[in-house]
Design a protein around this nucleic acid. Structure first.
Length: 215
DNA sequence: ATGACGATTTACT
DNA sequence: GTAAATCGTCATA
């Protein structure tokens, strides 16, 4: 596929082969990798991925693609490995997924939390709120799927963006290894409606990280 | 056209 | 622990 004019190729970022696997395999592998976002104003934001969730696809009652559902909203789930699936929910929050699996197979990994590394000042500003009572802590900047999207300025403008070549968002490989012993598995959050799929241990997080969504 | 519902976050009791 | 905030999306009519 020919890159679009706005695309770039950055050495050091994960490429399509790194995403071309099932979500249950990719989700733990993304832990420790670095999410990078170049904002509209040219700032570089970065964070270490510490929490992910696998969405298995057509048979997964918790997945937006359950039963093969395909709409304008979830269309990017059917894109190539490395595509972003960004959706809007609860009337106020965005969540970002990494599409994986084979082309046309609607499986993805939800990015649930990252540990802020670069651009903390901008993230703080992005997460500011009138109603907030107490000062926000660094460990609460990106400790949830909606929070990290707000901090990283991720919205539907990035839906469908390809992490392998988009200039605005990508993922770098692990700087330090994450051992299996550091990976904790647990049931996914917020999918109680999904019957037996709600209890499947498809959530992965880095043990003892203060930056995860449930502490 | 309408109504119910979120892969959430935050504050409050 | 409970509840409010807030609106795009999707199924139903």
């Amino acid at each position: 596929m020919k890159p679009a004019a706005s695309d770039i190729v950055t050495p050091g970022r994960l490429m399509e082969a790194d995403y071309a696997m099932g979500s249950e395999e990719l989700a733990p592998r993304l832990l420790g990798c670095t999410l990078v976002r170049i904002t509209k104003s040219g700032a570089r934001l970065a964070g270490r991925i510490v929490e992910t969730e696998a969405y298995i696809g057509v048979k997964d009652k918790a997945a937006h693609s359950f039963g093969g559902r395909r709409t304008d909203r979830n269309e990017s789930m059917y894109g190539p490995p490395g595509a972003c699936y960004v959706y809007f929910t609860y009337g106020m929050h965005h969540c970002v997924n990494v599409v994986c699996g084979a082309v046309g197979e609607p499986v993805a990994v939800l990015l649930r939390a990252v540990e802020p590394i670069e651009g903390l000042d901008i993230m703080l500003r992005n997460r500011a709120s009138e109603r907030r009572q107490s000062p926000i802590r660094v460990s609460d900047l990106c400790s949830g799927p909606g929070k990290l999207c707000q901090a990283f300025e991720i919205d539907r403008a990035l839906n469908g963006a390809n992490l392998c070549r988009d200039e605005r968002i990508y993922i770098e490989p692990r700087r330090e290894p994450v051992s299996n012993a550091e990976v904790v598995r647990s049931p996914r959050i917020g999918v109680a409606y999904a019957g037996e799929w709600a209890s499947r241990p498809l959530r992965f997080h880095v043990a003892n990280s203060p930056h995860v969504s449930r502490k």
